[in-house]
Structure formats: structure tokens, C-alpha cells
Computed example of a mutant assay.
Amino acid sequence: MKIIVCVKQVPDTNEIKINPETGTLIREGVPSILNPDDANALEQALQVKDANPGTEVTVITMGPPQAKEMLQECVAMGADEAILLSDRALGGSDTWATSNAIAAGIRKAGDFDILFAGRQAIDGDTAQVGPQIAEKLGVPQVTYVKEFEMKENGIVVKRALENGYEMLKVKTPCVLTAIKELNQPRYMSVRGILKAAKQEIKVWNAEDIGVDQTTVGLKASPTNVFKSFTPKPKGAGIAVEGDTPKEKAANLMAVLKEKYII
């Protein structure tokens, strides 16, 4: 069995700050991490590998050269192979252009049985790339997977909804996007770290994957970020006093009238 996992290196959102003058992200000094939902996707792939000897797990990402560090972490966790799509021609891609590039990279990597991806990346929160890849590869997809089970004639998953869940059966090859409730990602092992230090990370450019360069990059992207900003902090609130609910209501009405709200 062959499994591919789409991963992404993202800035740690707990450390992100925005320049109030330019409205752009301040990336200097901000650590990069493996996208949390992608860690759950990788963990599920590794669990399938543990239960099915002979299974190969390949991780693939698109990004700058420093994304190799994140891929090495994936190998240290248990992945067998890592592929980085890196080229200036791919820079500035939105979700549509990104999925074009990754789908082309997956085609070059070869056939697969299951493609796992995280539900969404914490630096964009669009949840679009996984489903778009599935459409471009022409395979079935299930998003928001919170439970996974291999069967003889397919895969059974529980898909989270806003007000419940769905139990779905899907045949391979397929694309599944994971949420954090699916599992608890494992840590890197000492043996895995030593393996990752020696592991060669494959680096493919736009020509290597044979992607139509008019469908990737900033110019090909139908969407772009106009401006990023943080909302202004709200003023301190006040506590309405009163011994009884009726008195509190009366005092609240007085405050609202004083501020000409009513």
C-alpha cells in the first residue's frame, strides 16, 4: 500500500505579529512548525503503516528551501520519503494555483491508495487545497475525518459536521482530510531523527513536475490577500451595579441613555 500525505510548514500563529503601518506579517524571529492538522494526517498514515507491513508513506509539500527542516521532522516521525516542490515560479500561489502544483507533484510521485491531508492550514484557514487536489486528481474525497477504519472492501470514516456526524464508506484511491480529533500525533523517535539526518529530501521544480506554469504562481492566482490587520482592542467594560435585577436594569438603561445609545 502507498500513502501520500500533504503537509505544510506554517508560522507559529501564537508568535505572529502584524506591522500596524504596513499591514503585513512580521516573519522575522517567528518559528515555523508543521501545520497541526497535517500532523494528524501524518499520524493516521503512520498508524496504517504500523498495522500493514510493507506500506510506504511519502510526505509532500510546496514551499521555500527551508521547508526541508519540516520534512525531516516528518521522516523522523516515521515517513519513508519526502518531496519538496520549490521554485520561484510557484511563489505567491493561492489555493487554486497551489493545488495545481501539488496535484502535478503527486502525479509524478506515482499512484497511491490513500492521500491524507490536514483539514486546513493555520496561516490561511481556507480548507480548500485538499478538496481541490482531489478534484484535479479525479478521486473521491471525504473532509473533516475524525475516525478512520480500514475494511476489506474499502475505508469507513466518521465525518464531523456542525451538528453531528456522518458515517461514510469510500473506495481507494481517495483523499481524506483530517481534524485534530482523529488522533494524537506521535513524537519524533531517536532512531527516526538519525534516519532523517541521512535521508535525502527530493526537491522538484516546476519543470520537474511538468505543471503548466500559466496555472501556478502569483499571476495565475485568481485570489490574493489585499490587506492583513489586527482589530483594534476594545475599551474596558463596566459593571452595572444594583441590589436587585430591577435596579440593575434601571441603572443599565440610565447608562445607555447617557451615552445616547437609546
Results as ranks from 00 to 15, higher is better:
Pro222Met: 01
Lys2Ile: 07
Asn224Asp: 11
Gly54His: 10
Pro173Trp: 02
Thr214Val: 08
Pro64Tyr: 05
Asn14Trp: 02
Met70Phe: 03
Ala250Gln: 12
Trp204Cys: 10
Ala39Ser: 13
Arg107Lys: 15
Pro140Asp: 03
Gln44Ile: 07
Ile201Tyr: 08
Glu21Ser: 09
Asn183Trp: 03
Ala51Met: 14
Pro131Lys: 08
Gly110Gln: 07
Pro20Ser: 05
Gly124Ile: 00
Thr58Asn: 02
Val156Gly: 04
Cys174Gln: 02
Gln199Met: 15
Asn163Gln: 10
Lys246Pro: 01
Thr215Ser: 11
Val255Gln: 15
Lys108Ile: 08
Asp212Trp: 07
Val142Trp: 11
Val255Pro: 05
Asn52Asp: 10
Gln141Ser: 06
Leu46Asn: 10
Pro233Asp: 04
Lys227Asn: 03
Ile114Val: 14
Leu71Ile: 08
Asn251Glu: 04
Lys248Glu: 01
Lys202Met: 14
Arg159Asn: 14
Asn19Glu: 08
Gly192Tyr: 15
Val7Tyr: 01
Ile261Glu: 05
Ser86Leu: 01
Lys49Thr: 00
Val225Pro: 07
Glu135Phe: 04
Pro64Ser: 13
Gln72Glu: 13
Arg186Pro: 12
Leu194Met: 15
Ile179Leu: 13
Thr143Asn: 11
Ala160Gln: 15
Asn153Met: 00
Gln9Leu: 07
Gly92Leu: 01
Ile201Gln: 12
Pro185Thr: 13
Gly192Leu: 10
Gln199His: 14
Lys257Tyr: 07
Phe229Arg: 05
Gly92Met: 05
Gly217Trp: 14
Thr95Ile: 09
Ala197Gly: 00
Glu181Val: 00
Glu166Lys: 11
Gly91Leu: 12
Leu34His: 09
Lys2Arg: 15
Glu200Pro: 06
Pro53Thr: 09
Gln120Ile: 04
Pro173Met: 04
Glu81Asp: 15
Lys151Pro: 01
Ala121His: 07
Gly164Leu: 04
